[in-house]
């Protein structure tokens, strides 16, 4: 079973907004110094599900693909430390200016170049720009099925049987291979890298592919959608802190206020 997982390096989504700054030159959100980037959370769920699935087969490999500019190798090597076999990157300043179509094209071409893969796992969306669309591009460009928000995946005979999450429930679906699978936190926590895993990952060479090698066409990378400006919305809200000498008093004061406002 040949598996690939697409991952993205993003600012840590648990950073409170007062620890973030906006660089309107590059149109990016950056953490205030010394806070490390992370692998997008849902992408780590994808790595976890991919590793779990690959363990069912005697012969299998999990390749990690990441694209961007100035990637932090300590960050993007995390899936290797978790147990993935290899890391393939494509870094180029022009990638930062691409929209979802450009990124999906770059990833699709990398998948074709380094594959073929039986399954391509992706996180359901990235926490920085929340587009939730690049995996659909991979599916469309490679003309293979996509199953989104997958919790569980099994191979039964030649078919792939998948449990996918829908609002208020789940669905069991069947798909052929190759296919694209997207994951969310329903997969469960990604495994912690072991010390041995971290040591091995640090020794592994990253396979670097140049953007030129992918032979993209101008129409592929010309963005239709551009960010003009990023800003923090003004917080005009003034919270009223309910005071009181005890929790009981605070509760009485709060309920009185809520009643006066007609909220309860």
């Amino acid at each position: 079973m040949k598996i690939c997982v697409c991952i993205k390096e993003v600012p840590d989504s648990d950073i409170p907004s007062n620890k973030l700054q906006i660089d309107n030159q590059s149109k990016k959100i950056l953490p205030v110094e010394n806070i490390s980037n992370i692998v997008n959370g849902f992408d780590l769920n994808a790595v976890e599900l991919a590793l779990r699935f690959s363990e069912n087969f005697e012969e299998s490999s999990v390749s990690i693909i990441s694209v961007g500019n100035n990637l932090t190798s300590d960050v993007i090597k995390k899936p290797l430390a978790m147990g993935a076999d290899e890391l393939i990157t494509c870094e180029d300043p022009s990638i930062e200016k691409m929209d979802i179509k450009g990124i999906a094209k770059v990833l699709s071409k990398m998948i074709l170049k380094t594959g073929p893969y039986d399954i391509i796992f992706c996180g359901r969306h990235a926490s920085d720009f929340d587009n939730a669309s690049v995996p659909f591009g991979i599916s469309e460009f490679l003309s293979i099925p996509l199953v989104n928000i997958v919790k569980n995946i099994k191979k039964i005979n030649k078919k792939i049987i998948i449990e996918r999450i829908i609002t208020d429930g789940f669905q069991k679906v069947e798909s052929k291979m190759p296919l694209v699978v997207t994951t969310g936190n329903q997969v469960g926590d990604p495994r912690y890298p072991t010390l041995k895993g971290i040591m091995e990952a640090s020794k592994k060479q990253i396979k670097k592919i140049l953007l030129e090698e992918l032979e993209l066409e101008q129409n592929d990378i010309k963005p239709k959608v551009k960010i003009e400006e990023i800003y923090f919305p003004e917080n005009e809200n003034n919270v009223e802190i309910i005071e009181g000498n005890s929790n009981k008093e605070k509760a009485i004061n709060l309920i009185t206020k809520l009643k006066a406002e007609g909220v309860i």
Partner: peptide, 15 residues
């Protein structure tokens, strides 16, 4: 549209 969860907003131009 909001970006980075709800921490920030961005103005996008679309062709």
């Amino acid at each position: 549209r909001p970006v980075h969860g709800e921490s920030a907003e961005a103005i996008y131009s679309v062709d």
